[in-house]
Amino acid sequence: MRQNLISLASGTLFGAGLAVSGMIDPARVRTFLDVAGAWDPTLAFVMAGAILPMTVAWFVVRHRSAPIAAEQFHTPAISPIDRRLIGGAALFGIGWGLVGLCPGPAIAALAIQPLPALFFIATMALGAAIHRFALSPSRSA
C-alpha cells in the first residue's frame, strides 16, 4: 500500500511538472523541435532542470543498501545498442515531432486536452500491441 501511495504521489508530481512546464502542449513541443525555424528553447531548460535532481537521486542510490519503500533497488539492465533500439528511438522521435506528445505528457494531457490525448494514447497502445504480438523476438523465431 505504501509503495502505491508513493507511486501515486510521484506520478502526480511528475504530471503536474509536465503541465506547468508546458511539455503537454504539442505546439510548444513542435517549436522546441523546430531548430531551423522559430525555435523556442524553453523546453531545453525544463530538460536541463531535470538533470540536477536525477544526479542527486543516482548519488543517493549508490550510497544506500536499500530504498525507503522497497526491499531492493530495481535499476535498469545495461543492454547493447542494436538495430531494434535505434529503430525504436527513431520511431519515437518521428512520432514526437509529428504529434508533439510522448507517453508521459500524453497521459498528463488527458486532464487538459482529453480527446487528442486519448487518441494518441489509443494509437500508442495499438502500436505496443502490434509490437508485442507480431514483432516480438519470441514470435519471430
Rank of each mutant, 00 (worst) to 15 (best):
V20S: 14
D34N: 07
P67L: 12
C102E: 13
V35N: 00
E71Q: 05
R62K: 14
A134G: 02
F133Y: 12
L101Y: 04
A66K: 12
V35P: 00
V29F: 03
S7F: 13
T75C: 13
V99Y: 06
A66V: 05
R28T: 08
L33H: 08
P67Q: 12
A9D: 01
A109G: 10
A111R: 05
D25V: 03
P67I: 10
L5W: 14
V99Q: 06
G93E: 04
N4L: 13
V46I: 15
L101N: 08
A129Q: 03
I78G: 07
A106T: 08
M1G: 13
R2V: 10
V20R: 15
S136W: 11
G87Q: 05
Q72I: 02
Q113W: 04
G104C: 08
I94D: 02
P26M: 04
G15R: 08
R139M: 06
S79A: 15
R28D: 03
F119A: 14
L118H: 01
W39T: 01
I86H: 09
R30S: 09
L85R: 15
F92M: 07
A108H: 05
G22D: 15
I6K: 05
L8P: 00
I107E: 03
A109V: 10
G15P: 04
P116E: 05
S21H: 14
A108G: 11
P53M: 05
G49I: 05
F32N: 01
I121W: 02
I112Y: 11
I94L: 07
R28F: 03
A129H: 03
S10N: 06
T12W: 13
G87V: 02
R132N: 03
S7P: 00
F14E: 08
P116C: 10
Q3K: 14
T31Y: 01
A89S: 02
P41T: 03
L110V: 06
S10W: 02
V46P: 11
I94H: 01
A128P: 02
G93P: 00
V29E: 06
A27C: 06
R64Y: 06
G97A: 11
L98Q: 01
L98S: 07
A48E: 02
L18H: 07
G87L: 12
A125V: 12
G97Y: 08
I112D: 09
P76G: 13
H74W: 11
S138W: 14
N4W: 13
F32S: 03
T123I: 08
S7K: 05
I6N: 02
F120K: 07
V35R: 00
L110T: 03
R83E: 09
A66P: 04
I121K: 01
D25E: 13
H131N: 03
A57V: 08
A90P: 07
N4S: 13
R64A: 09
A44K: 00
S65R: 12
A90L: 11
R84N: 12
L91D: 00
T31C: 07
L118S: 14
M124S: 09
I51F: 12
L13R: 02
R83S: 13
A128H: 06
V29M: 15
S138E: 15
R84H: 14
G87I: 01
T75E: 14
G127T: 00
G17K: 12
F59A: 13
Q113Y: 04
S21Y: 14
I121V: 10
F32T: 05
R64K: 14
T55N: 00
P53Y: 04
